[in-house]
Write a protein that binds this DNA or RNA. Structure first.
Lengths: 214, 214
DNA sequence: GTCTATACAGGGATAGAC
DNA sequence: GTCTATCCCTGTATAGAC
């Protein structure tokens, strides 16, 4: 335990736990109202502590928001990273869709926080999108293009394919309120994710099955 | 011209024009930061007038926001209303996708304002979603189901089909910054909408073409 | 570590001069 | 109609007692 002469970062276990409580509460608030629309009071109340107490652990609003964003992009891209050349292309795509849909089901607040950032133009975040994200998507687009060249996948635009997978899966988190309003109480329950999974399987797999050359 | 003894609403032409300037500026701001994250100062500056002057035309922030939202839902659902039994089912679906994609291209701020409302749970808007929107979607879902029953369309879930069309088309407005960051300057220009149109045609039309019964 | 108190800027809205 | 000035509440952040 070397706590002496270290950087000003707190490191004790209890501090980490408090920080987690705050980040958890902040995720609730930021994901609904975005950075500017959220207040420290809201977060403090959601975290069950006073505002000055919260500011003892994070010295500014920005300092709470930034680590959430960082963490999220990482979690978010994990399913895409896992797509590789191991198995059948259609199975890989299907598996990717499944994982993304599960993330919308299990981490809707993360999805909405990310969406909020995109809506305001991702200030101070664009560089990461333009480098890390772009590199990853470029890599996977090449992989998909390879599959298409080999005749194992219908030929189409791999970038827009990836966009459409993002869009359709994240829709169930970001527009959850609309989805449930339209489906109603009967079909809008937890089963909506199973219905979505079935639909997306059909849409993408029949759309991507390689065409027989007559 | 009966302007006497009317309700307190201003009605002169110049007033309407000023109101339009304000609404236009407010759309810019609200679509980026959402209702709570936007300030009247921002809107006033974007509209090129002072804050008190703006508040002479709209007596509160909410009074600027509400008509924007109303107007948008109407515009937004117009393409869906136009889908009918006149032509070929696949052509109708294709036409709907086109129109929605054009709206993302031509009215991205409207799309983002709507998305911002969804993200915060659509307070005071849920009723409309649950009634007007649901009714319209129910109606169109029945239409689509009819086509499927007649064997003119592959059998699938019409609700999730509509969701997926919304999601994929609106993505190009709501996540525009991400789309352009990933595509880069070469493919991220205006041509991205044409590429998207081609891709979505292929995805949905091959996914929805009726299966021959062997 | 947590609290009360508070400084100070930002933001919604109004008063009243012009 | 438009402005300056202002009110008052909210919100970020800090000081300092406990």
């Amino acid at each position: 335990m070397t706590t002496d002469a270290g950087p000003p970062r707190p490191v004790t276990r209890i501090q980490r736990e408090k920080q987690e409580v705050i980040l958890e509460a902040a995720l609730d608030v930021f994901s609904q109202f975005g950075f500017r629309g959220s207040t420290i009071d809201q977060i403090a109340e959601a975290a069950g502590m006073s505002k000055p107490n919260l500011l003892y652990y994070f010295k500014s609003k920005e300092d709470i928001h930034a680590p959430l964003l960082e963490r999220i992009l990482d979690i978010w891209l994990d399913p895409l990273r896992e797509m590789n050349d191991d198995g059948d292309p259609l199975a890989e795509i299907r598996s990717y869709i499944r994982r993304k849909l599960e993330m919308s089901r299990d981490f809707p607040r993360e999805s909405r926080l990310f969406a909020n950032e995109m809506l305001r133009g991702a200030p101070g975040f664009y560089e990461i999108l333009h480098t890390d994200l772009k590199d990853l998507v470029d890599e996977k687009a090449r992989l998909i293009k390879g599959w298409m060249a080999e005749g194992r996948l219908a030929v189409t635009d791999p970038y827009h394919l990836i966009f459409s997978i993002w869009a359709t899966t994240q829709h169930y988190a970001d527009f959850d309120i609309q989805v449930r309003a339209v489906l109603g109480p009967d079909r809008g329950g937890e089963g909506r994710f199973d219905d979505a999974a079935r639909f997306l399987d059909q849409l993408f797999l029949s759309g991507l099955s390689p065409k027989k050359k007559a």
